[in-house]
Design a protein around this nucleic acid. Structure first.
Length: 406
RNA sequence: GCUCCCUUCGUCUAGUGGCCCAGGACGUCGCCCUCUCACGGCGAAAACAGGGGUUCGAACCCCCUAGGGAGCGCCA
């Protein structure tokens, strides 16, 4: 979360430290009669459930101990159950789905404290929400069914329930929900795979939510424009290709110095010293149109920092043969004379060398490219030489000439 | 089984009764640009789950069916 730049405003709070408070509320509910002790054994409950399932009914507690008058059985530590209303319905206006209604008759008396006295989840969250004055509960739609019980609990405590918004969960490529045990990965994996936090955020915010046809959002736009009412109701599938596209988009539009900061660890990962070469921001500008991730960018940047360069022999054979070396030597001579080492000047020199020698641009650019990068792929050759600097460029050309001769 | 939720191109989505024989984006395919790889530009194929209603008119409203998901714990 910190990597994403998402920080909590308060907390965290630990429920284990609030046990006294939960106990206090339970005691109050017991005294008020909104909760009661239940002495039913697990065996009885299991049998009951089996019976109801067999009768094609929804399994639920039958309320045996609800109005128990006889003395409780010896040696049994009871659980505490909430006395849920028996009739009427619970209706709430879900902020993403609209009106949802449940019959109270469908709900049973849920356990709020176990026989060892510890409170249960549905109860603790309700007490926490009430104590902390929570106004909006936004959670996965797997909690829709818990909502009416929690609202009843809240009301019995004399608290007005908060607004609820149930958002759909995200599906993996196989159509199954992403979960801890199924397909989900931590956000830090995206960092390691070379994604920018804003790209991930942008992708995620658009998954299940939209603002017209807008695809690209800055952090501030997300905050300003996000609206629960525009959240889609159906679950959506995670699409890695679109994430990749968005990542490149942010790579291309973000401040190069900022991107450079994110690129450093990936270079280090490759064993490259980010400070032992050309200006990083410049490298970013040269590579951002040809990199979908920072990992790709680091790989593409590698040769800028590698001395001697690692030659791709297939490229050497293809571009530094007799003809290629001739072109390379011509370029070497002209470049050596060049006093002003700028992209424009380098470009002009290469063009005139090509014209003089009767070569097409490619016939001179490729030998040069292999000479300085070791491979047949790099940013535009004029830009590459400029970034590399005069000394390194000339040195590499000389080394390549020697290398290809043997 | 019962209850609740969901259903527009392969994917993310626009669309809230006429502007829709359905628009955008990713991906795919073709063309252009080009010193490599890319970026970019242009273009194409591609969807309202099915069936009934309501209405002059339905992707939008209602019902049913099918399919998907969740919940039904002394788990969270």
């Amino acid at each position: 979360m910190a990597w994403l730049g998402l920080e909590h405003d308060a907390g965290p709070y630990y429920q284990t430290r609030r046990f006294d408070r939960y106990g206090e509320v339970i005691a109050r509910m017991l005294a008020a009669g909104s909760a009661y002790h239940c002495y039913c054994s697990r065996e009885r409950l299991d049998a009951l459930r089996a019976e109801q399932m067999a009768a094609k009914e929804k399994p639920r507690y039958d309320g045996l101990c609800r109005d128990r008058r006889d003395p409780p059985p010896e040696g049994v530590s009871p659980v505490v159950r909430f006395r849920n209303p028996v009739d009427g319905q619970v209706v709430f206006e879900d902020l993403v789905r609209g009106s949802i209604a449940f019959e109270n008759a469908e709900l049973d008396d849920l356990i709020i404290a176990r026989s060892d006295g510890t409170p249960t989840y549905n109860f603790t969250v309700v007490v926490d929400d009430a104590d902390m004055g929570v106004t909006h509960v936004i959670r996965g739609d797997d909690h829709i069914n818990n909502t009416p019980r929690q609202m009843n609990l809240l009301r019995s405590l004399g608290v007005t329930p908060p607004a609820y918004a149930h958002v759909p969960m995200i599906l993996g490529a196989d159509g199954q929900r992403l979960s801890k045990r199924h397909g989900a990965v931590g956000v830090l994996q995206y960092r390691d795979e070379g994604f920018l936090p804003e790209a991930l955020l942008n992708y995620l915010v658009r998954l299940g939510w939209s603002h017209g046809d807008q695809e690209v959002f800055s952090r501030t736009e997300m905050i300003a424009l996000f609206d629960l009412g525009a959240v889609h109701r159906a679950p959506s599938t995670f699409n890695p290709d679109k994430l990749l596209w968005l990542n490149q988009h942010h790579l291309k539009t973000a401040d190069p110095a900022y991107v450079a900061g994110h690129l450093r660890p990936h270079l280090a990962q490759l064993g490259v010293d980010p400070d032992a070469g050309p200006d990083l921001a410049g490298v970013v500008c040269a590579l951002r149109e040809r990199s979908k991730t920072l990992v790709e960018m680091a790989e593409g940047a590698r040769f800028f920092f590698a001395d001697p360069v690692a030659y791709d022999e297939k490229a050497v054979v293809k571009h530094l043969g007799e003809e290629g070396r001739g072109a390379l030597r011509a370029a070497q001579a002209a470049l050596t004379e060049l006093t002003e080492w700028t992209t424009e000047a380098i470009h002009a020199v290469i063009e005139s060398v090509a014209a003089a020698g009767g070569w097409k641009m490619g016939q001179i650019a490729q030998p040069l490219r292999v000479a300085v990068s070791g491979t047949s792929v790099s940013p535009p050759i004029d830009q590459t030489l400029q970034l590399l600097g005069r000394d390194a460029s000339l040195g590499r050309i000389e080394a390549a000439l020697r290398h290809s001769r043997t």
